[in-house]
Amino acid sequence: MDVLERYESLVDDFSAFRAACERPLPSVVRVNGIKATPERAMDALDDEGVEYEPVEWHPGLLRLDSTSPGRTWGAYHGWLHGQEEVSTLPALVCDPDPGERVWAACAAPGGKATQLAALAGDEGTIVANDRSLGRLSALRFNAERLGVTSMAVTNRDARNYSLKPFDFDAFDRALVDAPCSCEGTIRKNPDALDEWSLEYIDSIAATQESILRRAVQATRSGGSVVYSTCTFAPEENEAVLDSVLSAEDCRLVEFSCDLETRPGVTEWQGEAFDESVRKAKRIYPHLNDTGGFFCAKVEVGG
């Protein structure tokens, strides 16, 4: 079955979209600001003779001309972290300040959560949660290698997450990088669509809605929640936002992003969504030569 066919009506240059989905992804690393500046990280790569190219829209990202970015001094020291270019977007949109409390609801293996810690200067409180204990060990390894000291790690179900262990009753911000059907990772994992089914999409969409609702409830009025997935399916993106908008006290807000994007879709297979879902951004692989992605910013309260 050709899964991607179902998105032909959503994508303006569908053949370019198809072609991009078949190309492998470039190797991209994020410079970890907790341990190094982009300048120093680039100096170290220069000394090692590793070629790279800065990513135009984000000064902390480098495209490496190397098949083994993990074997550089920068990787050993935790100055560099391999992270898909487009997956750096949600933490940038969340953009926490020092001193803020941030919930990363589905945080493992930790690329985005450690980026949140770095954006807050390692002076916030990042509560990184994941339901999978196995994936949490990868998160902990990454966080320690990257020198993160401002993170608490929990292993619970995000859908009914309790703040009880902590001495505060709301987060300032939250990031729900939801488990999803991962269609947008097809360039990294050519078998990403092998297990695809509508039943899975329906069931994961219910989980996504529960997690996003919980994140809105756990965030203070005036705070914000970023919702992201790496899938194209509107069932997991705009439909989830639409449900949460009607169930919780929150609204979608615009955000800026230097990548080329498309607005969220207001209609899918006969179903109409709240007009404000246009404020969400869809990123197709051919637009910026990245993986596929979806990102929305929700403001909590009046």
Binding site: R140, T149, M151, A152, V153, P165
Partner: peptide, 16 residues
């Protein structure tokens, strides 16, 4: 841990 939270804390990890 950079900062402070109430002790004891039931968590997998806190800081480094």
């Amino acid at each position: 841990f950079r900062g402070a939270v109430a002790s004891p804390l039931e968590a997998e990890a806190l800081g480094m």
